[in-house]
Every structure is written in structure tokens, then in C-alpha cells.
């Protein structure tokens, strides 16, 4: 069923808010808009930017979360990207990583490809799916207060945590981070592993 609830949050405000006090958290971004959002909030070696592999952001983060159990891992991805990897909600729910949080920047559109509507504007509730998969904490956020309340969950609550943030479709400038995959992984691994990155 199509939803008509008005959405006011701006994606860039939301992402820069989330990343403002990021501490030593490691961030994995889904292809397209959330990669640009993270870049716009400020490039950082602890960001792993995906430019492809649609549907793979959450699972990349799970591998990382298991390898780095003392670090907090946060996924920032789009609703379309998350929908392509719905099975990974089950996989992550069953794996139950304490240090993993997923934040979907949900504009109810495939923004990158021309703003076609996704399932999330037609009754599909990603947070409910994550809850059904056994995530420890799940919520859908529609307001500024909501996002303030959700941020501590992303960073601190025992996971897996899932937050779906409804954002509007206002146009935002393109901000592009590193593009070369080998450079992105080399820089990220060095930030996480130090000299061992080049073993």
C-alpha cells in the first residue's frame, strides 16, 4: 500500500549529524547516494566506500564486525541497496554481532537511477523485517528528535541495531570521494590495521 506520510528530514543533515561524533567507528557505505553523503560529511580513512556490489554493504560490514569485535561498525546505505540484500538481514540476525549497526537512508526511491519508487513507499517496513530477523534494536525515524534519539543506538547499543531514517527527495550536490577500489581498500586497511595492512 502506498504511504502518504510527509517526510521532512534532509539526507545530508541526517548523515552529517550521525557522523559528527563518530569516534573510532568504522563506516561502510552503500553504492551511490550514501557514499556521496558520507563524503559530503567529511572524507575519513575509516570510511569504506562501496561504488558497486549493490546489496553487499551489510554483509561487508558483518565480515568486518566479526574480524574487529572491539570496534563499532556502522553501515550507511540506501533503501534500494538494502532491499537487494534482504537475506543479509536474516544472516546478520542469526550471527547476532554486538558491534554492528545498520542505518538505512530511506528516501523510498532508487535515487541514483532516476528516483523510481522502491518498495518502502509501498508498505514494506525494513525495520520490521530486521526485527523479524532478530535484530536487538530496530526503529524507523521520521523526525529530528527521532534521529537524535537513534544516534546513541547506532554507536552504543548492543547489536545488531537497525535504524531506518525516512528522508525527503530534495536535490543535494554530488560530492565524490576516492573512486579507485584498490585505493579505498588500501587506505581503509591501513587505518584499521596499521603496518599489518601491507602483509
Amino acid at each position: 500500500m502506498k504511504s502518504n506520510r510527509r517526510i521532512t528530514l534532509n539526507r545530508r543533515d541526517v548523515v552529517s549529524n550521525i557522523l559528527r561524533d563518530r569516534g573510532d567507528a568504522l563506516i561502510v557505505t552503500g553504492l551511490g547516494s550514501t557514499t556521496w553523503d558520507a563524503a559530503a560529511a567529511g572524507d575519513h580513512p575509516n570510511n569504506f566506500y562501496l561504488w558497486g556490489g549493490m546489496g553487499g554493504a551489510a554483509m561487508t560490514a558483518l565480515g568486518l564486525a566479526r574480524a574487529q569485535p572491539k570496534r563499532r561498525i556502522i553501515v550507511l546505505t540506501g533503501d534500494g541497496e538494502m532491499l537487494m540484500g534482504l537475506g543479509s538481514l536474516a544472516t546478520i540476525g542469526a550471527a547476532a554481532p554486538l558491534n554492528l549497526a545498520i542505518c538505512v537512508i530511506d528516501n523510498q526511491r532508487y535515487g541514483e537511477t532516476g528516483m523510481q519508487e522502491t518498495h518502502t513507499g509501498h508498505g514494506v517496513d525494513l525495520a520490521a523485517m530486521a526485527a523479524g530477523a532478530g535484530f536487538a534494536e530496530t526503529q524507523t525515524v521520521w523526525s529530528k528528535q527521532g534521529i537524535e534519539g537513534a544516534i546513541p543506538h547506532l554507536y552504543e547499543t548492543d547489536g545488531p541495531v537497525f535504524v531506518d531514517v525516512k528522508v525527503n527527495t530534495d536535490r543535494v550536490p554530488m560530492v565524490l570521494p576516492l573512486r579507485d577500489g584498490t585505493a579505498i581498500r588500501g587506505r581503509f586497511r591501513e587505518a584499521v590495521l596499521g603496518a599489518r595492512a601491507f602483509d
Binding site: L62, G63, L64, R66, R196
Partner: peptide, 11 residues
């Protein structure tokens, strides 16, 4: 994707 993440984290 999991294998990539594991290796990014050193495993």
C-alpha cells in the same frame, strides 16, 4: 561481501 569485510578487518 563477507569475505571482503573480514579481510578489511584483518582476517
Amino acid at each position: 561481501a563477507l569475505a571482503l569485510g573480514a579481510w578489511l578487518g584483518g582476517e
